[in-house]
Design a protein around this nucleic acid. Sequence first.
DNA 1: TTTGTCAATTGACATCATGTCAAGTAACGA
DNA 2: TCGTTACTTGACATGATGTCAATTGACAAA
Lengths: 178, 178
Amino acid sequence: MDLLVESRGKGVRMGDIAKLAGISRQALYLHFTTRAELLIATTIYLDEINNTDERLAASRNARSGPERLDTYIEAWGTYIPEIYGVAKALLAMKDTDDAASKAWQNRMQAMRHGCEAAIEALKDDGNLSPDYSPDEATDILWTLLSVRNWEQLTIECGWSQADYIRKMKQLARRVLVV
Amino acid sequence: MDLLVESRGKGVRMGDIAKLAGISRQALYLHFTTRAELLIATTIYLDEINNTDERLAASRNARSGPERLDTYIEAWGTYIPEIYGVAKALLAMKDTDDAASKAWQNRMQAMRHGCEAAIEALKDDGNLSPDYSPDEATDILWTLLSVRNWEQLTIECGWSQADYIRKMKQLARRVLVV
DNA sequence: TTTGTCAATTGACATCATGTCAAGTAACGA
DNA sequence: TCGTTACTTGACATGATGTCAATTGACAAA
């Protein structure tokens, strides 16, 4: 996990991980039969120690739809950099490895439910833009908040983490809230 | 090119390409010394036969800033599915191969200039939202229109190509135009 | 004290894709 | 006829994942 986070997922081989863990490469395979499995276990572990589910669910306590949208974006936006290294490694395997692809899809579906709930809250408040159906709005929010977009805006465009969150909230409001 | 476009870039090996071209794998290496080079050459060729530059530049003729934004999104959005297979293959190599990474960055910078020009036109018209500096607005438009976002919305969310373009125009206007 | 189990080790090996190298061949033009 | 050019065949190196077999050392139960 340390290695993946630190090196942003790039060039981390099974041997490197074993070395850092102080065991042989083969011993690693006794615990995780494939690289994908190791990566998946790492994300699960990472979520566990970071208390991810709870932190993401905290936006439920918001009093209004727009506030809920804000807090969800804040929670998710804070979460991304913590998992970025592992996510990136998984993302890279996604296109060739079926297990990795499914694991990633699974994580992203979970995050989509958060988006869906936020949109639902907006709708219940009567604040959802009439331009979009709840499904479409969810699609848009989900895409807006993708890890790739975070990557592009912060790493390539040089936005600070604070900028990212602030601008993302503003953007989501402009698009989705009436 | 056919193979890449058709198979969406997935699992296309040098041997497969050679086979389809009716030459030996080694002969392929006489023409393109690396896979990355072949992919890069393919995108250039693809752009050439598709008259990409001209089509993307056509938005210059728009009479107003917002109209220019629309036509640019239309042109770019129409372009993406045509290059998607090759783009995807290049994208997959980006994280491990330096040449591929640079080539992709290069293409994306070119596309960024289009975004920049559209934002500039908005600003000149006094239509650019005061919430964003031109740079920020360019970052946002550039990210919004990324190939990954197109991929997510059309392939994963099931939006039709027409939906994508229509909604993207609408979204960009809501975010960027005052 | 013996025996069995468990986790791990060492080292060899299969696989698969990219990329390299060497020797040979068929066509074509001067 | 000679030389050049594009290509062929086939062998090989590399680097990563993943597999297999034989071995070791510790610990626990009989």
